[in-house]
């Protein structure tokens, strides 16, 4: 789970691998372009309403979780947070987490969040309460 980036040096940032088997794009591409694709897609989602793109910050956050001592995902105020570990190293500040949450959603409403599920009872199809 925890692997160090093979930088050949101990000085490199400690980076946690994501949960999935592979990222939405080549690692090399993401390293260079993640900010551009995130900003671009964020803009399209917000302003144009285009949903379902590949480069979703939400997916980054939920895939690249780093468990803390209590087993829960650490937030951006922890040095071990996926984004922060590298950004600290590169001394690049980011402005994402003043507004976006840096940990995955707590699924409080999962039972209600399925597409159209809310409509089903109205349609007399199923009643799942």
């Amino acid at each position: 789970m925890m692997t160090q980036l093979a930088n050949g040096a101990d000085l490199g940032p400690e980076i946690f691998q994501g949960k999935g088997s592979e990222c939405v794009a080549e690692s090399e591409f993401m390293r260079i372009n993640h900010m551009n694709v995130l900003v671009h897609q964020g803009e399209e989602t917000l302003r144009e309403g285009i949903r379902g793109g590949n480069f979703s910050l939400k997916e980054c956050i939920s895939c690249h979780v780093v468990p803390g001592d209590d087993g829960k995902p650490v937030a951006f105020d922890s040095e071990r947070h996926f984004c922060r570990s590298c950004h600290d190293y590169a001394a690049v500040s980011i402005d994402c987490f003043t507004c976006h949450n840096s940990v995955p959603d707590v699924e409080e409403f999962t039972e209600k969040s399925q597409n159209l599920s809310i409509m089903l009872p109205f349609l007399g199809l199923t009643e799942n309460e």
């Binding site: 939400k58 956050i61 939920s62 003043t98 507004c99 976006h100 949450n101 995955p104 959603d105 707590v106």
Partner: peptide, 15 residues
């Protein structure tokens, strides 16, 4: 300062 935002509803101090 805000915490615990939902992923689909970002909200942050100063906006």
């Amino acid at each position: 300062k805000t915490t615990g935002q939902r992923s689909f509803a970002p909200r942050g101090k100063g906006t």
